[in-house]
Nucleic acid binder design. Structure first.
Lengths: 234, 234
DNA sequence: CCCGCGGCTGAACACGCGTTTAACATACTG
DNA sequence: CAGTATGTTAAACGCGTGTTCAGCCGCGGG
């Protein structure tokens, strides 16, 4: 992994090797076309042969694992940065707007689309983030308290990620060019207004339905959450 | 297509032929495993050879087209029925609970997951339904008026479908058995409570954010909608 | 009787894909 | 300079898949 005598750290130097180019190309291509993208296409993107990819990474699965780890690392970086800047909040939305991080956000969306273990893990991660974010909003008086913080966080996160997934399948052309920011711009443009309305005023005129439901089913929360996903009864 | 001399209509008689069995098996298998399911698996489900499928339907794509049409027809039926019973409303949620229609709902979800032309068409269909449903709720005083009915309908539909998609990728095991109703049960169970809370009380304590946003961007609606999908800024 | 035709099949073909293999180039080492 | 490790490649293999092909079976009509 390290042969040149330069004094850069191994991690830094690797960013100049073809292995790094492959990783970069793979992330971009996976974000564009999903994880079904042929290995040879990634190879062409990186300007190398297909065989070299498996030589460096072992297999396509391992390549994806490497990309996953790298993306997660980048995201942690970004979170540290925005947190340090006091600009806390849900990163998925903001991330998409930042030119640099948009591909990462789309990559994450592809992870959800592909499903599997990593998707579930990542979702829990996002939910935990949302819990924190909502709690902070609650403290600052911006957000209402909930009967079940975890369930609410799960609902909102699920709606967000789900909507992203839907937009991905409904408008694949937005990803086909490398224009990842356009994807998020379109998403927020069509969503912000009605979402703010829903968040500010609600949807129902009375609390009758809610009260009836709460009467019907027993206790709402206790401590830890139990269920998982999200989809309101329209 | 018709050789036996019975007096049933051609369409009815076909429901006894192996072509019908193939269609039925394909719908179930597509719902379970998605449209990537191998033709030979469907053939095994239907108890026929793989070659017979293409003999009857021409190709896998054509088979899917036939299934799409059939499912759409079934859904129209179901809509007519529930509408006649005065039990109007969004069918996707209710549909999942009805033992008979649950596979159809999952099939539709798979359609969205696969993306493409039919997904977009179907989504518009759902949005139109939601517009009607919301308007009716508004008339009956249950639902608040909106600044942009179409945008709101798109948001809510997108959140619903998106959440369904997410649950599909997050919990594929719920589909792996043929238990399609369990899928929807789990979905509504984890979602209903926080969704009702959100719909009844909103999320934000003040309308400041909304007003600011509305001040910032010009007119909200006019007549027809323009954008498409949905995903609130968490 | 047999002839033909439609339902139906197993085997073979074509193709895209991940992966393996053998070889070549380059550069560092003794 | 030989030797060896490392980066890199073209070609081939294996496998899963949609599709095609040649033929079998059973039955209704001459």
């Amino acid at each position: 992994m390290s042969s040149t005598p330069g004094r850069l750290s191994a991690a830094e130097r690797r960013d100049l090797t073809s292995a790094a180019r492959i990783r970069e190309a793979a992330i971009l291509r996976f974000a564009r076309d999903g994880f079904g993208a042929p290995l040879r296409t990634i190879a062409a993107d990186a300007g190398v042969s297909g065989a070299l990819i498996v030589h460096h990474f072992g297999s396509k699965k391992d390549l994806r694992r490497a990309c996953d780890a790298w993306v997660l690392e980048q995201i942690r970086d970004s979170k540290r940065t925005t947190l340090a800047a006091g600009d806390s909040g849900p990163w998925l939305a903001q991330l998409g707007r930042a030119e640099r991080y948009a591909p990462l956000a789309v990559y994450v969306a592809r992870t959800f689309q592909a499903g599997g273990e990593s998707a579930a893990e990542f979702f829990d991660h996002l939910v935990d983030d949302a819990v924190d974010y909502l709690a902070e909003g609650e403290r600052s008086g911006l957000i209402r308290p909930s009967r079940d913080n975890h369930a609410r966080a799960r609902l909102l996160t699920g709606m967000n990620v789900g909507s992203m997934l839907l937009q991905m399948t409904l408008h694949p052309e937005l990803l086909q060019g490398g224009d990842f920011t356009g994807f998020f711009r379109h998403l927020t443009e069509t969503v912000t207004a009605p979402a703010l309305e829903l968040y500010s005023e609600g949807l129902l005129t009375s609390r009758k339905l809610l009260d009836e439901y709460l009467m019907y089913v027993p206790d709402p929360p206790v401590g830890a959450g139990g269920g998982e996903s999200a989809a309101p009864p329209s």
